[in-house]
Write a protein that binds this DNA or RNA. Sequence first.
DNA 1: GATGAATGAGAATTCATTCAT
DNA 2: TATGAATGAATTCTCATTCAT
Lengths: 219, 219, 219, 219
Amino acid sequence: MVPKKTFFNLEEKKQDKIIRSAISEFTKYGFERAKMDTIAKNANVSKGSMYQYFDNKEELFLFSVKWSIDLFYKRYGRYLNLKKDMNIFDLFYKDAKIIWSQMMEERDMVIFIQDVLLGKYKNLTDKSMSYIMDMVNKNTLNMIQNGKRNGSIRKDIDDNLLLIFITGVSLKFKEHMMNSARTQGKDIVDEGFEENEREIKSMIELLKNGMGENRCLFR
Amino acid sequence: MVPKKTFFNLEEKKQDKIIRSAISEFTKYGFERAKMDTIAKNANVSKGSMYQYFDNKEELFLFSVKWSIDLFYKRYGRYLNLKKDMNIFDLFYKDAKIIWSQMMEERDMVIFIQDVLLGKYKNLTDKSMSYIMDMVNKNTLNMIQNGKRNGSIRKDIDDNLLLIFITGVSLKFKEHMMNSARTQGKDIVDEGFEENEREIKSMIELLKNGMGENRCLFR
Amino acid sequence: MVPKKTFFNLEEKKQDKIIRSAISEFTKYGFERAKMDTIAKNANVSKGSMYQYFDNKEELFLFSVKWSIDLFYKRYGRYLNLKKDMNIFDLFYKDAKIIWSQMMEERDMVIFIQDVLLGKYKNLTDKSMSYIMDMVNKNTLNMIQNGKRNGSIRKDIDDNLLLIFITGVSLKFKEHMMNSARTQGKDIVDEGFEENEREIKSMIELLKNGMGENRCLFR
Amino acid sequence: MVPKKTFFNLEEKKQDKIIRSAISEFTKYGFERAKMDTIAKNANVSKGSMYQYFDNKEELFLFSVKWSIDLFYKRYGRYLNLKKDMNIFDLFYKDAKIIWSQMMEERDMVIFIQDVLLGKYKNLTDKSMSYIMDMVNKNTLNMIQNGKRNGSIRKDIDDNLLLIFITGVSLKFKEHMMNSARTQGKDIVDEGFEENEREIKSMIELLKNGMGENRCLFR
DNA sequence: GATGAATGAGAATTCATTCAT
DNA sequence: TATGAATGAATTCTCATTCAT
């Protein structure tokens, strides 16, 4: 998962270009059909150079995953963070909004991460996948525990089941949003978001109060 | 997606063996790395024959998907069916139980279907994937509409969002169960199920009433 | 060192052609520079087929070695054999004669074996080289022990040193003969052999009685 | 075979280091698999610099050969030299002893030279190999002629055959010693030599008097 | 002179698919 | 129909050599 140092000697801009080229190719074609040659060319780099940076295609892939997650958190982590009084439902809201806005400028990366999380590359990532899952889950688990403490989350259900519950909804919902974004193209941006916002809120409502009918009306 | 008639001329047992061999290979290695040769050998069939039954690897894959779904419904469909008064939560319960018991004898197929549903083969299945998704979603959507009608599901939220909601939880939860089954090995069967049953019920509770704290106690 | 069974399914003629092509290529260019493609083409076989017969270039090489030795012994072994009363000097004589005549029809193979014995492929063969060395040395060692017993070889010197002594001379002398054969082309055959015979006899004289001056004249 | 003058501008120490690094690499991996990069790194020199010193890998190799021989003769030549009354058997003795002691401190170089002499690099060296062979053979041939003149070597056998005879034994025997040295590690030094000395003397005995039984006892 | 990043020609190897028997 | 040998396009990966700094 670690590129050779030669990679880190490159200008950051170039590093960027290479990884983005890789991400784009992997997302488009999957791991096997992705060609090193194409990745190289799209990054304006020679095939040979790629092998000075990475031992092989798998290294490149694994590092692309790490890079994506890291970048995502570096960029958007602060939005997600984690004020004492923030609860998991706000997090879901913010998270969804971020994903949505991200889809506008970083669609490749977002889709790539989504694919990874959905297990599209299971065979490859099982090894080092823990890295991402840990990162993602730790945060959520934290929120859940906070929520239990401050009374916004019910205490009678195991943390891990709650994690599965929210993660499941979250993944599928992100996928749904991404499909919308994909379909709508890059132009929608704001108008698109209104409709979207309504959906996000509905989802949060479901997370909070479930889909059963006779829920408390006064809430 | 349609094998040649030669395939259907085979004894059913042989058809079975071939598809199961394919499923196992695809699950283990993904589409690209799956080898026709290995699939053939594991089915005690010659490589050449495979091409008398299927035009190419993709056909084989696509048919394997169809076959899996069909078999699944043939076998377990009656359990899922669809009495007028059954609600989606009962469905979830049954579904989960089935998956669990299925993992014992048909783990390859179950995992394969799960992978397909999670989008691992998106690139391939986009074309004809609709087939399954339709089948699965139509059912669920039906239930949702039923539920709304008979008062077990809230009416203020869009059908499709409810679909996403329940599907998301369902997928992730199945994955969780499958991992448990995998870890525990084939021997657990019954003991394993007690713990499992508790989890299923917790999940249904969450689906129904959400994870928020101040839910109505009188329910 | 073992080809896949597919190789042995081939007509013996074809097997022959393939290995001879390999031997010729290895001898001409050494292991690294030898191209699978060329070997395949010269054997009227496709590159892909080569990999149905052998796992990789190294397997092919290793098997070529084994094949050469085996063939050599199958063909000429009987000449070398090993009558009770044959002594090592006769063996040397026969051996040299065989090499010489072999150079006429099997020059590639002979040169190849010679190269292997001389250690040209040391890096590759160290692993399984034992096979040949054993074969060659066991025979010679036998002769030496026989010789000691029947009084044609001095007993005051360690078997292994005698082995080194005779092997050293033998290798270098074969090389010398091969160079002659190479230089003279294929036409010499018989005339060439007269001169050759004189040399062989000189060598045996040296092996027997050494190069010191005051050797016993009555011998 | 001639490095660029830039090479000779280097401190002698550095020249040394570079060539030794090359020798070590060539010996370990053979010419093709030897990497310029590794050679450079082990000599604490940049890959680019290597190409300021040598036109290409082959030049480097060829010069390494020359350098080895020259060094060998510079260091040990005086021991070998060539007093009027020295005979070839003394030479063999000295030679062997030197090799043995050399194996202790210059094992890389010794092995390298041995490989060259055995023809491991035949394809490469054929061109300029004459340089070494000439050097080595001229000496030996001289000795032989001396020996014939002063009565220590029989006159009835052709010089070149005698050359082959002694060279063959010599090469194989050196190889044998080198293997011993390799096996025993660097610590043996003196104890190892006793056993060794016996072997050397046996070899000379064989060279002088041959391996035949009924040699003259009065000698 | 020194450096090490960049290059790309070249080779090994893989495997879906074809096809003669 | 069944077989499995044959094929070659396609791809990964290597490394000597060049060249800008």
